[in-house]
Amino acid sequence: MLVNTERLVIRPFQGENIQDVFAIYSDKEVCQYLLHEEWHVGNMEEKFNKKLVNRSLTPNTMISLAVVLDEQVIGDLSAWYTDMKDTVEIGYSFSSASGGKGYATEAVGSLVAHLFNDYHVHRIQATLDARNTASQKLCERIGMRKEAHFIQDYWNKNEWTDSIVYGMLDHELNKI
């Protein structure tokens, strides 16, 4: 999968991207609301290699994509099929330095359009830590709607957290 937007290239990760990706996931602020802790030098290669093999979206495999600006990876997009027919969940992370410039909106919006148009999925969803207001705003900017707010439904990093689910149906894509 290769998508070019106005400013970005979205493509599978390449081996030389390891340091850019490490810079994203070794940032405590970036990982604050993710399901994993920050990366460290000791696990960087193992974690990154998992992204390298996630090169195609099928019912049994997820896809991990690099968001590239001027030859530097500034973000990570993921998509995977859920157990529900023709439903895909998305996830994303971006470097702190890239915040506030519209790159995440551009990249995630393009991913959603690509999934609906080229994979013909019926529904796309994103499940977020409810404290992640930036991610909530991103979902809303690309046309997703808040569908659920679950109270203390997920045990993560030694605490109960709330989850919010955003969703969008294929016929709602034109609202982006």
Score class of each variant (00 low, 15 high):
residue 1 M to K: 04
residue 2 L to A: 08
residue 3 V to H: 08
residue 3 V to Q: 10
residue 5 T to N: 06
residue 5 T to I: 05
residue 7 R to V: 12
residue 9 V to F: 07
residue 10 I to L: 10
residue 11 R to A: 05
residue 12 P to G: 05
residue 15 G to F: 03
residue 17 N to K: 04
residue 18 I to H: 01
residue 20 D to T: 06
residue 20 D to Q: 07
residue 21 V to F: 09
residue 22 F to G: 00
residue 23 A to K: 04
residue 24 I to N: 01
residue 26 S to P: 00
residue 29 E to I: 13
residue 30 V to Y: 06
residue 30 V to H: 05
residue 31 C to I: 06
residue 33 Y to S: 04
residue 34 L to H: 10
residue 35 L to W: 07
residue 37 E to D: 15
residue 37 E to C: 09
residue 38 E to D: 08
residue 39 W to F: 14
residue 39 W to H: 08
residue 39 W to I: 05
residue 39 W to Y: 13
residue 41 V to I: 15
residue 43 N to A: 11
residue 43 N to T: 11
residue 45 E to C: 10
residue 45 E to A: 15
residue 49 N to G: 04
residue 49 N to V: 09
residue 50 K to M: 12
residue 53 V to T: 14
residue 54 N to R: 13
residue 54 N to G: 08
residue 55 R to A: 00
residue 56 S to F: 11
residue 58 T to H: 06
residue 59 P to H: 04
residue 60 N to V: 11
residue 61 T to D: 15
residue 63 I to F: 09
residue 66 A to R: 06
residue 66 A to Q: 05
residue 67 V to M: 10
residue 69 L to D: 08
residue 70 D to G: 09
residue 72 Q to D: 11
residue 72 Q to G: 01
residue 73 V to L: 07
residue 75 G to D: 07
residue 75 G to E: 05
residue 76 D to C: 00
residue 79 A to V: 00
residue 79 A to W: 04
residue 80 W to C: 07
residue 80 W to H: 11
residue 82 T to W: 02
residue 83 D to S: 12
residue 84 M to K: 11
residue 85 K to C: 12
residue 86 D to Q: 12
residue 87 T to I: 07
residue 88 V to A: 02
residue 88 V to F: 07
residue 88 V to H: 03
residue 88 V to M: 05
residue 90 I to H: 10
residue 90 I to N: 07
residue 90 I to F: 13
residue 94 F to W: 07
residue 97 A to G: 06
residue 98 S to G: 10
residue 99 G to T: 06
residue 100 G to Q: 10
residue 101 K to T: 02
residue 101 K to L: 13
residue 103 Y to G: 04
residue 103 Y to W: 11
residue 105 T to H: 06
residue 106 E to C: 14
residue 106 E to F: 12
residue 110 S to H: 09
residue 110 S to W: 01
residue 111 L to M: 15
residue 113 A to W: 03
residue 114 H to P: 04
residue 114 H to L: 08
residue 114 H to C: 08
residue 117 N to T: 14
residue 117 N to F: 11
residue 118 D to L: 08
residue 120 H to S: 13
residue 121 V to S: 00
residue 123 R to A: 10
residue 125 Q to E: 14
residue 126 A to M: 03
residue 126 A to S: 09
residue 126 A to C: 10
residue 127 T to D: 09
residue 127 T to V: 15
residue 128 L to H: 01
residue 129 D to Q: 07
residue 130 A to R: 03
residue 130 A to H: 07
residue 131 R to E: 13
residue 133 T to I: 12
residue 133 T to Q: 12
residue 134 A to M: 03
residue 134 A to R: 14
residue 136 Q to L: 06
residue 136 Q to P: 01
residue 140 E to H: 00
residue 143 G to E: 00
residue 146 K to V: 12
residue 147 E to F: 12
residue 149 H to R: 09
residue 152 Q to M: 04
residue 152 Q to G: 07
residue 153 D to Y: 02
residue 156 N to L: 14
residue 157 K to F: 14
residue 158 N to M: 13
residue 158 N to H: 14
residue 161 T to H: 08
residue 165 V to T: 14
residue 168 M to P: 04
residue 170 D to E: 14
residue 173 L to S: 05
residue 173 L to Q: 05
residue 175 K to D: 11
